[in-house]
Amino acid sequence: MFDRFLIRKDSLENVVSGGEVTGFKFAVRIADYRGCFLSLHNGYYVECDGEQYPVSLQKFEINNRPPRSFEEIRKCVWEHWDYDDEGFLYIEKKGGLLPGRHTIGIQQSVLAQYGYMPWDEEWVKNPPVPGKGSGAGKTAAICKFELELQA
C-alpha cells in the first residue's frame, strides 16, 4: 500500500559495535494505514544482494530503546509502535556491506486483526514466516529497493 516508502532511501548504514562492523541497518515505516502493538510485529523478509537474512539475524529499534530481537519484541504486548514513528531494522552481517549500491528486498509482517480467520489459531501455534505473504497486510509483494550505503 505504501510499498515505495517502506524504507527511507538515505538510511542504509553499516553498524559498528566495539570497533568492528557487525552488520547494517536501515529505517522503516509501517506499511499499513495505522500503528500496531509491538508484539504483533513478527519480523521481516530481508534479502540484500541476493542473500537472505532470517528473523534470527534481525533486531528492531523503536521507542528510544536499544535494538531488540524479535523474540523480545513478541513479548511487548502493551508497547505501541505509533504510526508516525520510524523504526530501524538491524541486520547481523560480519563486516557489513561494501560501499556502493545495494539491492534490498523486504516484506514486513504485522499480525494485525481484521477478522476472525481460520488461520488465527494456527498463527498462534505457527506464526507466519515473513516473506510468504501471510501477515504482510496491505503490502502483498516483496518490495525492492536500490539503496546507496551511507558513509
Binding site: F37, L40, D120, P127
Partner: peptide, 12 residues
C-alpha cells in the same frame, strides 16, 4: 476501533 486478538504469542 479495531480488536487485536493476537497480541499474546501463545493464545488468542
Amino acid at each position: 476501533a479495531f480488536l487485536e486478538n493476537k497480541i499474546y504469542d501463545n493464545r488468542t
